[in-house]
């Protein structure tokens, strides 16, 4: 929508068209799916630039191959169509998940992953990045962005966990969260992430990747800021073992009832270890800017106040 506001003509490949009230005048909607190449062909026609943002970002899938069908094969479909249609430049939305946990210093783009790939999401995004590099060598101009944990106005799904949490706090509901006070995460405000994508399109160097995140904060700092901004949130910190145990219960519930688990012991692992990131490359290279967490939370609270 921001791109459309800037006067760009947008072709949006969507699985379901949004309600007419939420449609933007500058956007043409194409119904389709990245796993369906003909639908990509219809949408990509006459485009100059491609933002490949779609992905399967849940913590669990009924069939594990869903991660690979959407995140890897889907990306390959987009890349192939982009090369065939002489797309000028493509920005691929990867994830900071490909880097895994951090040690003493925040992770930069060239740092090696210190643990094995222990879940299908991380692995599928990593393989997708390889495919993007491959097409870069084939002559398609590609740039990769790696957002960290995104929050801010918008959907309240798993992919926007902090916002979901704040909404619950504002409604006076209880919130359970990992209570390992010292564990550090990186929190990126949605507007920064959107800008980061546009900057990557404008100034990103072909074949490079850019971490687009926000502030590195421990859970304790995070909770303190939220407590400052919302009146009496009811947050219950859970110890790591309880979180993992809950993951096993979710898995068992799934085996017994078939209901989708909220998370699994493996997929929640990343929230129990440090994941600090260094955005210097994006800041110096493409002019990326970071909104402070307190600021971002204030904006999110205002947005949520207006919607509830």
């Amino acid at each position: 929508m921001k791109l459309a506001d800037h006067g760009n003509e947008i072709h949006a490949l969507v699985r379901r068209e949004p309600e007419s009230t939420r449609k933007h005048k500058g956007i043409t909607y194409f119904r389709g799916d990245i796993t369906d190449p003909p639908s990509i062909q219809r949408a990509i026609k006459n485009c100059e630039e491609v933002y490949h943002v779609a992905g399967y970002a849940k913590l669990w899938a009924k069939r594990r191959r869903t991660f690979f069908d959407i995140n890897v094969t889907g990306t390959e479909n987009i890349l192939r169509a982009s090369l065939e249609n002489n797309i000028r430049k493509l920005v691929f939305t990867s994830s900071c998940a490909v880097f895994g946990p951090s040690l003493r210093t925040p992770i930069t783009e060239t740092d090696p992953r210190i643990t094995s790939f222990n879940n299908d999401y991380d692995l599928s995004k990593f393989i997708a990045e390889k495919a993007v590099h491959e097409y870069c060598n084939k002559g398609l101009e590609t740039v990769i962005v790696n957002p960290s944990r995104v929050y801010g106005p918008g959907l309240t799904t798993h992919a926007n966990m902090i916002t979901k949490m704040i909404l619950r706090c504002m409604k006076g509901q209880w919130v359970l969260m990992p209570g390992i006070n010292k564990v550090i995460g990186n929190y990126a405000f949605i507007d920064d992430v959107v800008n980061g994508h546009m900057l990557a399109m404008e100034k990103g160097v072909c074949g490079e990747r850019y971490i687009i995140g926000g502030e590195n904060l421990s859970y304790q700092q995070l909770i303190e800021i939220i407590k400052d901004e919302i009146r009496q949130p009811k947050i219950i910190p859970l110890p790591a073992k309880a979180v993992i145990g809950w993951g096993y219960i979710e898995l068992m519930k799934n085996k017994l009832t078939g209901r989708e688990p909220k998370f699994t012991p493996k997929s929640v692992d990343r929230y129990l270890r440090d994941a600090a990131f260094d955005c210097s490359k994006a800041i110096n290279g493409i002019g990326y800017g970071i909104t402070g967490f307190r600021d971002g939370i204030r904006k999110t609270v205002n947005y949520l106040n207006a919607t509830i």
Binding site: R64, I114, T115, S116, F117, N118, L123, F126, I127, K130
Partner: peptide, 25 residues
């Protein structure tokens, strides 16, 4: 589970071989 290609291959193994899989770390 040494590298991504090997992990993908390991995932296709039998349940017993998957149970015995270890991470490098």
């Amino acid at each position: 589970n040494s590298n991504p290609a090997q992990i993908m291959l390991n995932k296709s193994g039998t349940w017993i071989s998957k149970m015995s899989l270890m991470n490098t770390e």
